[in-house]
Amino acid sequence: MMKILVVDDELDVKDLFLQRFRREIRNAEFQLAFANSGEEALKYLAGHQSEVILILSDINMPGMSGFELLRHIRTDFQAPPSPVVMMITAYGDPDSQQQAVELGANDFLTKPLDFTVLKQKLHDLA
């Protein structure tokens, strides 16, 4: 089972993901966790060390941005297995993409999310 942490400041993202992945959750393929900010995500990660395999994070959030979260993940949670991080942004500009890759992101997705593509990527990882 793959544990996924979704980080987004929009609260409805939780319901959306739960419904989008309802079959996978029911079949116990995925386990989803949610955080509404970078700070919350770090707190969660600190409490669930090495459990989370994949992190899906929005870049553009008030307070700690997705990039900062990524920097923290890559510096503070180096104990293997290091999680796969996919960055999500509304601004699909090459600069952000390059910055995400430089900071150690594994993938870069743009909003609106194409869940078919996302599911495929997750299945490939699993």
Binding site: E10, D12, L16, Q19, R20, N60, A90, K111, P112, L113, F115
Partner: peptide
């Protein structure tokens, strides 16, 4: 644009999910 895109994404996503449901 950003503020409209977000709710529109939700509208699209939730309606798609609803069709699935």
């Amino acid at each position: 644009a950003h503020e409209i895109q977000n709710p529109l994404n939700f509208v699209n996503n939730f309606s798609e999910v609803s069709i699935e449901l």
